[in-house]
Design a protein around this nucleic acid. Structure first.
Length: 194
DNA sequence: CGTACGATCTGCT
DNA sequence: GCAGATCGTACGA
């Protein structure tokens, strides 16, 4: 079932990033339904986190959406060509977000393959933040979407993961963040199989 | 207004 | 393993 708004508000962003492993990210673009199990996430923890776009309370047209109440999307363009999908969490004016880095394709596999320009499933097909947006058809047009109402949502299908399957470590590509680059804010599932 | 660069991926070697 | 792709955003002038 679809998760409620309150899910995105009640815990801190780091706990949520870990908890989102095993949840299902679903998009419905036109009549194309695609979904995948979330297998890798990263937390970006507000104005005190040097790796966060809102570090130091920075507010720009791009980051503004992170200051809204949780439960909406934050999609932005990276390296001029990749759309990265984040889930805003927490209270209004607290700019936190969870970056979805990898999924395991679950529904609409054919459509996912078509969008990814692939002919068969492979281990790396939807591993990497730029790949999952392409696979699910997410672009910057889907920025600031309400994840409890629109064409993008999160489902809790009660998929059980063992504690021992969940690993954590430093985030990727945030070397510029100094000490904060070392924080264990990245979570992923190992040995994942359906 | 001009410019430098990024929470990356792919294809070729 | 490595370079090239490719452009919105942020920031300084």
């Amino acid at each position: 079932m679809k998760v409620k708004k309150s899910y995105f508000l009640e815990e801190d962003v780091v706990s949520l990033a870990e908890d989102m492993l095993g949840k299902v990210l679903v998009t419905k673009m036109g009549n194309k339904l695609t979904a995948g199990i979330i297998t890798e996430t990263e937390a970006y923890d507000g104005i005190g986190d040097k790796a966060c776009h809102a570090y130091g309370g920075k507010r720009t047209p791009r980051t503004e959406v992170m200051y809204a109440q949780g439960g909406i999307s934050y999609v932005y363009l990276c390296y001029g060509m990749h759309h990265l999908f984040n889930i805003v969490t927490g209270k209004k004016d607290v700019p936190q977000a969870v970056l979805i880095r990898a999924i395991q394709p679950l529904k609409g596999i054919e459509e996912i393959l078509k969008r990814r320009n692939a002919t068969k499933l492979s281990a790396n097909l939807c591993v990497g933040p730029g790949k999952i947006t392409k696979a699910l058809g997410i672009t910057t047009q889907h920025n600031a979407f309400d994840l409890t109402k629109g064409k993008i949502w999160i489902e809790d299908d009660n998929i059980q993961l063992k504690k021992s399957q969940i690993l954590k470590g430093p985030r990727i590509g945030v070397d510029y963040a100094g000490e904060d680059a070392k924080l264990p804010y990245r979570f992923w599932v190992r040995d994942y199989s359906v």
